[in-house]
Write a protein that binds this DNA or RNA. Structure first.
Lengths: 189, 189
DNA sequence: ACCAATGGAAACTGATCGGTTTTCATCTCG
DNA sequence: CGAGATGAAAACCGATCAGTTTCCATTGGT
């Protein structure tokens, strides 16, 4: 059995916010969120200070799944190169699934514009963790310029995710050779 | 002297739409657009069928400046490699300017979600032209896989532009070596 | 069985949304 | 000078926005 049997109001709101803002954008109304969650507006505003805070909490709550869906398990014995490639294999996999709209954290930051918005701050933090993973693996691998490689990888991640999300590319045959090229040049084998 | 001396209502609306939707997102209200353009809503709806059409027309009208600000002049005698690098030099330059928010066409597509929205169609077309430029240069250069290279370049373009637009990276020391690596591996010298 | 806490449904606030219409001042042209 | 066209300002429309409040049915504890 899982630890969460029946979701409470708070969890249902977070889940509805995650789903609807990803599908329709952060401009989605609170009435729609409440209806989808089966929770009254009164309860929403007892649990969260504002729609903005609900949005931020929803992003933060989804960070675990985001990481779990992309990163390899810690200390799985594979090489840094394999562990980095794992992330992009997962991305390509997710990009092929129906309903994929690109990285939600990038989308939120682009939609909100204001970088000081609570949800934008959360999104930035979560994405920084991904960059940190890349840099850690790059350093562990003894790459010539680990920081450059990490920046290149997150750049490819966001570019690929965004382009797949808007249906401009399906990433097939694109992401693997591109990342491999960057890893090769950085000296990762 | 330039060909346009004083902008008419239509041009002022297109300009205001370009500026405000880039700064604040496509959710900007028509009242704000009209006020910024100094044009009444009545006139707006005589000139455009809807806000969506105004937005689409505004993007289309800005395509010329977008191309002029990025692409090198046709037949400037430089090599494909130099001409491709020119685009990314321009991008890095623009990314350093105040008010830079990333590629407006990518942002519009991400914000709208609906790929059949008239403005989303226009944005897609304009970005396809950039990919076409990359592919043409790649073919002209005799690259091993011109199509792959073009997709890699537009991926880097969107990724770099998006990340600079949200303030996640300033591209300094990132974009040039990354593109150079891709060009090297593709056999462009 | 009773009382109090819970929370959903819905009414409500004031603001804003996209879009339409009216009014009135200004301009051009005969 | 006078008639017609123009277009900005602003009222107006129904819908929706974020957020608050009221009302009432359900619930759990005693």
């Amino acid at each position: 059995m899982t630890t969460e049997a029946k979701p409470n109001s708070r969890e249902r709101l977070l889940e509805a916010a995650a789903m609807l803002t990803y599908r329709d954008g952060v401009g989605i109304g609170v009435d729609a969120l409440c209806k989808a969650a089966g929770v009254s507006k009164k309860s929403l505003y007892q649990l969260f200070a504002s729609k903005d805070e609900l949005l931020a909490a929803s992003l933060k709550e989804g960070a675990g799944a985001f990481v779990a869906g992309l990163l390899p398990p810690a200390n799985d014995g594979r090489s840094p190169r394999e562990r980095i490639l794992h992330v992009f294999e997962q991305l390509e996999l997710q990009a092929g699934a129906p309903g994929f709209q690109g990285c939600r954290y990038l989308a939120v930051q682009i939609e909100l514009k204001d970088q000081r918005h609570p949800a934008s701050r959360v999104a930035r933090r979560i994405k920084r963790n991904l960059t940190t993973f890349f840099r850690a693996e790059a350093e562990r691998s003894g790459a010539g310029d680990p920081d450059l490689l990490a920046r290149q990888l997150i750049l490819v991640f966001d570019g690929a995710s965004a382009r797949a999300g808007i249906g401009a590319d399906n990433l097939k045959g694109l992401i693997a050779p591109t990342v491999a090229t960057l890893l090769d040049v950085a000296g990762l084998r």
